[in-house]
Design a protein around this nucleic acid. Sequence first.
DNA 1: AACTAATCGAGACGGTACGTCGCGTCTTATT
DNA 2: AATAAGACGCGACGTACCGTCTCGATTAGTT
Lengths: 195, 195, 195, 195
Amino acid sequence: MSSSPSPRGRPRDPRSHEAIVSAAAELVAEVGYAATSIGAVAARAGVGKDTVYRRWRGKPELVFEAVFTATDHAPVPDTGTLAGDLSALLRGLVDEFRAPAAAAALPGLLADFAADPLLRARIRSGFLAPSKERLLVVFERAETRGEIAAGTPVDLVLDTLAGAVFFHVGLVGEHPDPRLAEQLAAVMAKGIEVR
Amino acid sequence: MSSSPSPRGRPRDPRSHEAIVSAAAELVAEVGYAATSIGAVAARAGVGKDTVYRRWRGKPELVFEAVFTATDHAPVPDTGTLAGDLSALLRGLVDEFRAPAAAAALPGLLADFAADPLLRARIRSGFLAPSKERLLVVFERAETRGEIAAGTPVDLVLDTLAGAVFFHVGLVGEHPDPRLAEQLAAVMAKGIEVR
Amino acid sequence: MSSSPSPRGRPRDPRSHEAIVSAAAELVAEVGYAATSIGAVAARAGVGKDTVYRRWRGKPELVFEAVFTATDHAPVPDTGTLAGDLSALLRGLVDEFRAPAAAAALPGLLADFAADPLLRARIRSGFLAPSKERLLVVFERAETRGEIAAGTPVDLVLDTLAGAVFFHVGLVGEHPDPRLAEQLAAVMAKGIEVR
Amino acid sequence: MSSSPSPRGRPRDPRSHEAIVSAAAELVAEVGYAATSIGAVAARAGVGKDTVYRRWRGKPELVFEAVFTATDHAPVPDTGTLAGDLSALLRGLVDEFRAPAAAAALPGLLADFAADPLLRARIRSGFLAPSKERLLVVFERAETRGEIAAGTPVDLVLDTLAGAVFFHVGLVGEHPDPRLAEQLAAVMAKGIEVR
DNA sequence: AACTAATCGAGACGGTACGTCGCGTCTTATT
DNA sequence: AATAAGACGCGACGTACCGTCTCGATTAGTT
């Protein structure tokens, strides 16, 4: 049960980790996901390629960490209505996806994750997990208020909302409609409410 | 009004076109989008690389044509209710995306289209155009029946539905839930109905 | 015994021949032998590639004709001495090789001729034949005058002189020594004279 | 005075160098200079193309090193007469040029060197330098013996001899006359002797 | 203090794919 | 039959990344 078996040899320099992640995020924002190569990231970070491969299995994992580290510390919205909560939740999701590096990375990242059987399983847990947790709380409250029935399919709703946001932010729009979150929340809330 | 002023020189062999498209579709289904190279497609088609590049600007354009040629000849559904029509529409979309080559190609294809400014503009017109036309007819009828208000945002609905299907078929599920189309249609119909 | 068996169909346009040869000579002088392609020659001549291939087997033959057409119409030198005659002969050879297109074409041309078994045999007859005929006359007169012995090896002398000129003009010098012809003639004359 | 300040990174594998040079020499001898491609050399050497391009700028440089590495270790001939020394020198030159790989490479190699301004300057220093040094010694002795005058033009003699040998071995003859060296030496010696 | 061992920057390594170019042949409609 | 245009199968080009490896040099903990 020892978490540190015995760290012999020179320990990894935490500054390298930081420098690589920063370089990756910058490069993705500047030249896009496809044109971001491990070699270029290492060069910009002032680091050897091995130092990258020692920490990440490949570009998808590295870029994912570099771009989606914004662990949501905002409290779960509690506006009193399902529509309001969904709207707030979606606004957060849109903001996260709209960040320069994120928007540039999303499509390529999802493609690489989908192509690799090992990564494929992590799409839900990796990309959507934080949102799902928050959505569960929102659903719980809505259920308590009697707005939705028990057993409302969380994953279906989440995929739908995420898909819509992905289509708008990642694929189509340079400047996604600011009312997107609100409209989408209204439709979805109405769609799943009991009455 | 003459579309062909006078095609000088040897005309392009339509059999090459056909062979290339077939080879591309096969390869994508067999080895995936990323591992499908122009050179390999040309070799399988028994064709020089130039003959491919003469007709398509690159892999994204070629694979798109090879995989999404299924011009929807099915009639626009007319079940009498919005939910029914949407359900039928979605079933078609799911079936189209679930085809081996399409499912294998979708994520990478969308990523490449999104990365190229020239192609980016064609995502909506290319991938979603047929569905949009059909959805418009469905909306028109629903409006006539008084189910939905005039001015219901078609693109929002379309992106939402397509995004949900894409997430399920392209990214997550090996075997997408057969009830996906129906559930999604029910929620969406309820979400946009007037009452 | 008929030289024209029966020229049926459209006769070849002699203007094409002229245009191709000119284009080839220009291109060789401008971009060099290696960078001169049949396609570029045809394009500059305003002619299809087949029209070139119908008249020449390939680039070496075409360029050879385009560059070494200067059929020597000058009379065989007759200065009264072997050294004088050789000097005059060499001056002609140097001038022929020093022409822009010729100097640019020579090394590559010789290489292509040497590489092809069919052309290899024509190096002597093609490049050196005119010079050899003139040299034979010069030798005949020198023999009559008693300067050289009968049976002096013409080919050896010719190869030696041509090789020297080729090395200077084709390979080494931008501006070959103007006294080259004279010096070479003096040494060679002395080397083969009887006393 | 340190020639190697500190060679960082993984050093180049000398076995790769050796394998590439051998493969190049073999290929040139087997299929000729023109048909020898960098890719084929790399493949036969069991090496990536980059490993070749990292060491040589292109085919001419590579083949030159592969074919003309025979650093002349034979002593400068000293037969007591100019004609004898020249004959021995020429025999060496003929033997060097007549080697399978050398004979096959020479014309194309000279053409490529002549076509490239950077390489053009190296023709004399690269191909003829060893011979020139030896010829200088021979001339020095002949001068001491009073056979030739001071200031006899070495380059002219060298170009002439090399040109003659090149014409015979590289361009014309499959089996060059075995007496070529002797005859040529006799003529040239006589041509430059003082009397 | 000497030893062991993992990490570091650098860059070489065997591969694979890229997109372009030239080859010499062919297939059009036109002359 | 020859022509201009240009498509065709082929194969080489030189470059870019891939992920691994091999250097000498650090930088720790263990003897």
